[in-house]
Nucleic acid binder design. Sequence first.
DNA 1: GATAACTTGTGAACGATTTCACAAGCCCTC
DNA 2: GAGGGCTTGTGAAATCGTTCACAAGTTATC
Lengths: 211, 211
Amino acid sequence: MKPIAESTVRRLSLYLRFLEEFEAQGQLTISSGELAVSRGTTSAQVRKDLSFFGSFGKRGLGYDVRDLIGSIRQILGLHRTWSVVIIGAGKIGAALAQYRGFATRGFHVVGIYDKDPARIGTKLGEITVRSDLEIERDIERLRPQIAVLCVPGEVAQAVVDRVTDAGITAVLNFAPAQVQVPNGVTMRAVNMATELEILAFGLSHPEELAS
Amino acid sequence: MKPIAESTVRRLSLYLRFLEEFEAQGQLTISSGELAVSRGTTSAQVRKDLSFFGSFGKRGLGYDVRDLIGSIRQILGLHRTWSVVIIGAGKIGAALAQYRGFATRGFHVVGIYDKDPARIGTKLGEITVRSDLEIERDIERLRPQIAVLCVPGEVAQAVVDRVTDAGITAVLNFAPAQVQVPNGVTMRAVNMATELEILAFGLSHPEELAS
DNA sequence: GATAACTTGTGAACGATTTCACAAGCCCTC
DNA sequence: GAGGGCTTGTGAAATCGTTCACAAGTTATC
Ligand SMILES: NC(=O)c1ccc[n+]([C@@H]2O[C@H](COP(=O)([O-])OP(=O)(O)OC[C@H]3O[C@@H](n4cnc5c(N)ncnc54)[C@H](O)[C@@H]3O)[C@@H](O)[C@H]2O)c1
Ligand SMILES: NC(=O)c1ccc[n+]([C@@H]2O[C@H](COP(=O)([O-])OP(=O)(O)OC[C@H]3O[C@@H](n4cnc5c(N)ncnc54)[C@H](O)[C@@H]3O)[C@@H](O)[C@H]2O)c1
């Protein structure tokens, strides 16, 4: 299979969200055009995105909503559950640990860790904060695939080294720090300050930011 | 000026972060190559990004760290402060309201609003949660430029309509909902479930996600 | 002031992604 | 079962973003 652009995967995730809304409204079938206008893209883009993975529609009719939901889930790897550990039970870590939007998509938070004794033992929704000393043991025991990093930037690299050594193969990093991961580990960074800065750029340069 | 790609703006924000670290370490001058390796890009990319806005370096020598920080701040619109309101004082809104990474970059949270009476009057760090009924009056009085949306997806569109009607011109949306904004308003969405799903795709299809 | 060692700024080449455009397929009606 | 009206799937074209490659400028050294 040829390499898939990240932009394609991101759109598939959005299509899935929309399809679920259409399904909830009882719509049985949908055309690439309907799927496109709801999101800000074109029908050709929708069809091209799907075409990388196969042929899911019926010419003249469109896509069966329920089938396409199943197909996109399969493509994205959401037909199974994924286990997630959160490192850092501060403000953002606590918010994420209690975020229901993860569980409903098959991402189960199996552990949250902090090194501050005041936080260890605290309950966040269903789950209890554990000591960071237990990170390695728990990762080896529970075999989570994904680590979400919510620690201060200064310790981000050290923490990533620990979790990847213990067997984590994907990292979502909220710390505003550039961290290196070993080969075979995927990493994504969410930098909220950067998002605000892109807005500020747009406000400062009307009409100049390619949308 | 020709339209600037979002990828360029995003990298400028990262260059700025790195330059600040280099400045803190007392480094006076830096080459495009040094700036590139720290981040995962190339020296040509760094120079090209900067070249859209002018010429900031000295051939043979590189860039003056302090000057370049000033230039990038100017480009991004960070030479001034921006006022931000947060709508929704739930878990994520509360975390963002207390996030110091915004203030240090010139984004001042001037108000946070909720419609839940139990939350109104609560203190989050320096700032007190106010009633959502005061959103319009405050926006007209304080003239913030940016609204950060931390409300449930079902009400996101209604809230965006309210804040843009009141004069907000940029929106950062954390709700997993596709919302429409009027012409002249910029919007960005941060969708954490999508980020996890991109990781899941990568885990499910090793070697197939173009990096 | 000539030479060497660097580094920038930038057209041009390249590669990737999006858009276009249309043949092929499906459903419905007559 | 033929025709009309839709819609998909996909090569080809167009657009957009990144990388290459090099002339030109700077500093240091002799
Ligand atoms: N608060 C936000 O809204 C927000 C937004 C974007 C990014 N971030 C980033 O997310 C990170 C966390 O932010 P926060 O606001 O939650 O900060 P916080 O101080 O509330 O939480 C950080 C937590 O990490 C813990 N910690 C420190 N070192 C650790 C270690 N080695 N192992 C385990 N836990 C450790 C601390 O004890 C603390 O509880 C920071 O890098 C911040 O820049 C925060
Ligand atoms: N918690 C997370 O980590 C997280 C992560 C990503 C995205 N999100 C999204 O962010 C949004 C908020 O999530 P949360 O976890 O903070 O939920 P939450 O329920 O803790 O907070 C939502 C808050 O919005 C308030 N609200 C509802 N309607 C309002 C209105 N019309 N005006 C003002 N306030 C109103 C509610 O009273 C509540 O306090 C949701 O859309 C969620 O999907 C949350």
